[in-house]
């Protein structure tokens, strides 16, 4: 009576399970099946058996046993694995719960030939040597392009930039002044440049500006120039000035450091 109640409970639990699904020829596992009474084993399979199964694992479970059953469906359909079991001692199996499985067909119902194999592009194997050669040649071409194709032609080289010297800046301003075309804003620059010329000529570059101009004042030639510039550019009432005589020495100046 007690065994029967256990069987009913187990049967109800197993029946509540969803059937294990697989396709024809593919093995599947039904774990944790508890069957009452003595131990079970698969019945002998024949050539006509639609399902072949084996018990992977079994252990005691109270008065019952717990099984892990692996099965392989050979024909499509719904099966009860319990019908493929028998007790080891060949005694009556009694009321076993159903162990439902479903074996599905991969082929159509009336298809007798296997499915066509799909063509798969195999991965590229080999060819490393060729790849290395290709990359090497591309690198060499790039190097040659840098060395030769993109090299600037000697005749078309851009001019090397160099800072303007004081003499470079002074010449055009003096030229404009001699031609009477020097704009008022250029007077200040002309004066600064002439001061710089004389600072360099008298090696006063490292003296302070205040000391330098004081030294220039007492120099014969520089002092005369500064006084003339004062009269021309700064005095309230301008005295007559021979601009040509004043600026002509600086019209073709090339090296501001050389003494006139």
């Amino acid at each position: 009576m007690r065994t029967f109640a256990v069987a009913l409970l187990i049967g109800a639990a197993v029946a509540a399970q969803e059937p294990v699904r697989t396709t024809v020829g593919m093995p599947a596992v039904v774990p944790g099946i508890v069957l009452p009474g003595g131990e079970f084993e698969p019945i002998d399979a024949t050539l006509k058996s639609p399902v072949v199964l084996r018990i992977e694992h079994v252990q005691k479970h109270g008065t019952a046993h717990r099984y892990t059953i692996q099965f392989t469906g050979l024909e499509a359909g719904e099966y009860d694995l319990a019908t493929f079991l028998r007790r080891k001692d060949r005694s009556d199996i009694g009321a076993l719960p159903k162990i439902p499985v479903v074996v599905e067909a991969v082929r159509d119902e009336h298809q007798h030939e296997p499915n066509e194999l799909q063509a798969i592009t195999p991965p590229a194997l080999g060819g490393y040597e060729r790849t290395m050669w290709t990359l090497g040649i591309a690198w060499a071409i790039g190097l040659l392009a840098i060395l030769f194709a993109f090299r600037k032609r000697a005749g078309a080289e851009p001019a090397v930039a160099r800072p303007l010297t004081i003499a470079d800046r002074l010449r055009p301003i003096v030229a404009r002044a001699l031609e009477g075309r020097l704009e008022p804003a250029g007077h200040a620059e002309l004066e600064r440049l002439l001061l710089s010329v004389w600072r360099r000529r008298l090696s006063l570059e490292h003296a302070t500006a205040r000391d330098a101009i004081a030294a220039l004042r007492v120099h014969d030639e520089a002092g005369a120039l500064l006084r003339a510039l004062d009269q021309w550019l700064h005095a309230k009432e301008q005295a007559p000035l021979d601009l040509d005589a004043l600026l002509r020495p600086y019209a073709e100046i090339r090296d501001e450091g050389a003494l006139a």
Partner: peptide, 10 residues
Amino acid sequence: LGAVHATTAK
């Protein structure tokens, strides 16, 4: 003031 500017010449 009278020295070389940062300008460059070709």
